[in-house]
Structure formats: C-alpha cells, structure tokens
Amino acid sequence: MVKVVKPPRNDKLPLTRPVIGVAGKTGLWRNMKPLVNNVKCTRCYQCEIYCPVNAINVEPETGAMINYDYCKGCGLCMDVCPSGAITMIPETGE
C-alpha cells in the first residue's frame, strides 16, 4: 500500500495540473483568421477532428464554431474543409 503524505513545510514540488490556456491566449499569435460560412458547412466534422488547438466545435444546428481566444490561425481547417466553407482573412485584432 502507498500513502500520500505531504511534506510538512509544503515544499514546492515539480507537479503540474490541467489548465486551459497554459501558454496564454494563443489567439494572439494569429495573423490570419478563419471565417466559417455555415450555409456552406455540411457538418462533416473534418475541421473539428483535425484542429490542432482543439478550438473548433461542430454542432448540427450551428455548424462549425471557432474559439478565437485560442485559434492560432494555422489555416489547417480551411485546407481540410471539403466544401470550401472556411476562408482565411487577415487578422485585424478586432
């Protein structure tokens, strides 16, 4: 058996715990911004499956929704979209 007992003076240990935005708001890295045309979107989930930042959520009702706080603007979603529903536009910081 093992018992976890904290050190008496609460020593700083090299332990980490899950947190959203560990590298900050990575949306700030973006110089191109993806825009979704949800009329064209066929809900095929390709963008959601491939998005490396886990920043796209596809719902049957709404289509693809992008979390711009963390989207790094790589454009991968545009490349994998089979219906041309995603376009990249220059980031204006808006």
């Binding site: 058996m1 093992v2 018992k3 976890v4 007992v5 904290k6 050190p7 020593d11 240990l13």
Partner: peptide, 8 residues
C-alpha cells in the same frame, strides 16, 4: 510502516 511519498 507502509510506503509513503509526497505524491503518486
């Protein structure tokens, strides 16, 4: 006693 450690 049993095994003790600061985390597991």
């Amino acid at each position: 006693g049993e095994r003790r450690q600061p985390y597991v």
